[in-house]
Design a protein around this nucleic acid. Sequence first.
DNA 1: AGGATGACCCGAT
DNA 2: AATCGGGCCATCC
Length: 110
Amino acid sequence: MQKPTSTDNDATTRIYLALAQVPEGRVVTYGRLAELAGLPRAARLVGSTLRKLPKDTSLPWHRVLNAQGKISLPQPGFQRQRDRLQAEGVALISGRVDLTLYGWPRQGEL
DNA sequence: AGGATGACCCGAT
DNA sequence: AATCGGGCCATCC
């Protein structure tokens, strides 16, 4: 048997799987998502991966924010993400989300 | 094979 | 609070 490395399963696949678990009305940071995907410190990779998502994906790409709880998307994506978040009850106050409130997972939630 | 790239992150100013 | 610099990691060319 070979010891599994972080590159064994496609990073993309692992990120997809992790993202699929983020519940509605909650959000994750790129960094956190990377960890959950078993790719610690690969926050940037998560970003470029989401960038390539097919626009018809069913994955909750909009529930991903940067470590400051802000949207890291250039227009026009920015607005789309903001609207989607608001649609599921995630409020942006002064352009940012309170991660201690909507952040996922919270202690003991996994 | 080696260097550039990016929906990032964090500590220090 | 706003900037800056250096670090990070799988991909792409």
